[in-house]
Design a protein around this nucleic acid. Structure first.
Lengths: 247, 247
DNA sequence: CGGTGTGTTGAGTAGACTCAATATGCGTGG
DNA sequence: CCACGCATATTGAGTCTACTCAACACACCG
């Protein structure tokens, strides 16, 4: 029954395989993405907004975030990236990057050149479909984030955000129902949730005092998972990943 | 110099050609997408949130919007679709649709089945790359919308939204520097911008009285394009479409 | 000619913001 | 080992943006 001879257990291979059945040759092509392993310090800007010729990366270790800057100096964090995530895809598909990407912790990542991607698509066409699928799942997360900003109160946003992050981390084995380790500052939360840092602090205090969730010393602890889900209206359907759909 | 014998001038062909040079055979495959022409009344729900087995559509005429509903009955409009736009791609890539799509005006659209897409990707692999490219451009718009909701004031949001819509309509010949015809109600604007309908009304009045823009009787008139762009911090780089990039 | 959808305006409220001061923790250099 | 600086977290006070509720205007349509 087992037709695969290769069992490449990289996070990316696993992620893409969730959408499209990849042949051995497809998987071998993917290997090329892991040739250029890099290491970056916290705060390092991997991709600069407006940069031309940018690379993409596959995150192996640590946290990063993608963001856009506004003319008045404020910033909006679009998404956080955790181990296994692809990062900066749009910045290689387009001439100039429409967003910046910054390391939050010390990170390890494989640099993927524009030519790596395009060659891969040319030699292993199914990869293009697989990447489209993965990119669409990322887009679904951005859309949910957008709903969060547009129609939810500060506390609902926070609840939703922490639950989504928790769910994503669980998928890669970095958290469980009780909580997860989290290197983000309240400024990161503010920039992601469209709030002021001061208000983030107040909201966190309120939620802690109400026995919902405790964010302290780099750890998020879910004190009442069920009630948190109620407040957030958290569905999780959009994070859905199921077995290979295309043979 | 001209290697193409086919000149299929559909909006979608033009859009995809902006990213990837399509062969005659690719373009012929695309033709299959136009077999099932449909017509829908205003308010018709083309895709229901949570629907399984949904189709996608290519919009030929009229306006539509994609949205998500919240448990309390509110809705957040994620994007508006205008002629030439692809609509509901994520709803066929995933088992269940994470968003709804509704006709705003009477519309004409070609229904694209899941199998149409997947067959096309199998027979004309470059199409998968082209669609990935187009989907990424759409994602860039969603990201800019997200920034709008997270970090801009009501007036800035409105300015940015109207300018973006104007720019997109210009690309398909449905508007110019002076303005464009717009079938949206103030409720649509409210649901898109994360504001209450009452506040949308006030903001529009304020902008009209300040000689910025006039939205009346189904027409948006830019009274001071430059100042509007200043207020919005409108860049337009993310809408960028240039000649074929991949041969 | 009344009903329904849309737009308009006023009055009062509340959630989130800004400014400002004060902790707390950590790394570096003396 | 202590002192200092810097980043982050916390709390208070006052303000403002955008919201809710409510009333009314206008147009289109059956």
């Amino acid at each position: 029954m087992e037709t695969r001879t290769l069992t490449l257990d990289s996070p990316l291979t696993r992620k893409l395989s969730a959408f499209v059945a990849l042949s051995d040759s497809d998987q071998e092509t993917l290997l090329h993405f892991y040739r250029r392993r890099r290491r970056f310090q916290p705060g390092h800007e991997l991709i600069h907004e407006g940069q031309t010729k940018a690379s993409a990366y596959i995150l192996a270790e640590g946290w990063a975030c993608s963001y856009k800057l506004l003319s008045d100096g404020e910033r909006q964090i679009v998404d956080f990236q955790i181990p296994g995530d692809f990062l900066g895809l749009r910045s290689i598909l387009f001439r100039t990057s429409d967003h910046g990407i910054e390391a939050i912790t010390r990170i390890e990542a494989s640099e993927v050149l524009r030519s790596d991607i395009l060659d891969a698509f040319a030699h292993a066409p199914r990869l293009a479909t697989a990447v489209l699928w993965a990119a669409s799942r990322d887009e679904a997360m951005v859309v949910e984030h957008l709903v969060n900003l547009g129609r939810r109160s500060a506390e609902e946003r926070m609840a939703h955000f922490l639950l989504e992050l928790g769910a994503r981390l669980q998928l890669v084995g970095l958290g469980d129902r009780t909580g997860f380790d989290c290197p983000l500052t309240q400024y990161h939360l503010a920039d992601a949730l469209g709030l002021s840092a001061v208000h983030v602090n107040r909201v966190l205090r309120h939620m802690r005092e109400n026995g919902l969730v405790t964010f302290r010393n780099g750890r998020v602890a879910f004190d009442d998972f069920a009630r948190l889900g109620d407040i957030a209206g958290f569905d999780m359907a959009y994070l859905d990943q199921e077995g290979p759909r295309l043979r």
